[in-house]
């Protein structure tokens, strides 16, 4: 709307705004490709043991990481949800989500249906947000969470605990790999939000002392399924 050539209220029109910039530049045209050197920037090679790398980096970042097999996933989940009353589940449909829902209901835990609520408010009542991931990054122990039809922005931010299930295949080596993916995908086909989570919420604002859980979850638990 306000991005056409006519000025919108107090703003400048795009043309005027860009012309002010251009006036300071040398003859401009479409630029060549920007300088880049992904080899220089890369810290983890593709051939590395990505599960081990991810687990140790995520642990360093303050997440509780456990490697599980598909067979032990249910038991592991159950043991972690011992004293939990309410959860939200933000996962793609499929057997893994079915398994999670099965475990949770068997334990008598209430599943808050965040789809019916407006915005992220539903998650404020949950003790744990359970999610899958769009990807994970070994280099930094990062979980990648994208919004979508089955994925809420609140599940991994609002409840005091976030429990993420990460299949081995989701782990990429380096941030370079994560952000090189799908360069041609048009903007509107991308998730509205993609959040890279690399630890529990932290602050050092008070005298530089590190405290976790300031706004987001204070505990992030990761089950890597191998």
């Amino acid at each position: 709307m306000s991005n056409d050539t006519a000025p919108s209220g107090p703003g400048l029109s795009r043309d005027v705004f860009v012309a002010r910039i251009r006036a300071q530049l040398d003859a401009s045209g479409p630029p060549g490709p920007p300088p880049s050197d992904s080899k220089l920037v890369r810290r983890v090679e593709d051939g590395a043991d990505l599960v081990a790398e991810f687990a140790s980096r995520a642990t360093e970042a303050g997440m509780a990481v456990e490697t599980v097999s598909p067979a032990t996933l249910r038991a592991q989940l159950a043991s972690r949800l011992d004293d939990v009353k309410r959860v939200t589940v933000s996962m793609s449909p499929g057997p893994r989500r079915d398994a999670v829902i099965d475990v949770v209901t068997t334990l008598g835990i209430e599943i808050i249906d965040w789809r019916r609520a407006s915005g992220v408010l539903a998650h404020y009542d949950a003790d744990v947000g359970i999610t899958d991931v769009a990807a994970a990054v070994a280099e930094t122990g990062t979980l990648v969470l994208s919004s979508g039809e089955h994925h809420s922005r609140g599940a991994f931010m609002v409840p005091p605990r976030h429990l993420a299930i990460v299949p081995r295949a989701a782990i990429v080596a380096d941030l370079v790999d994560l952000l090189a993916a799908e360069p041609g995908r048009p903007p509107h086909e991308r998730p509205a939000a993609t959040v890279l989570v690399s630890g529990p919420s932290k602050t050092a604002d008070i005298e530089g002392i590190l405290i976790t859980g300031v706004h987001g979850p204070g505990r992030v638990e990761v089950l890597v399924v191998v």
């Binding site: 970042a61 039809e149 922005r153 903007p187 993609t194 690399s198 919420s201």
Partner: peptide, 20 residues
């Protein structure tokens, strides 16, 4: 190594989204 949250926003909520 990286900030805890790196949030990449490409537009408001999509038609299928339930929040945002």
């Amino acid at each position: 190594p990286i900030t805890i949250y790196t949030t990449m926003l490409t537009g408001p909520r999509r038609a299928a989204d339930h929040d945002g």
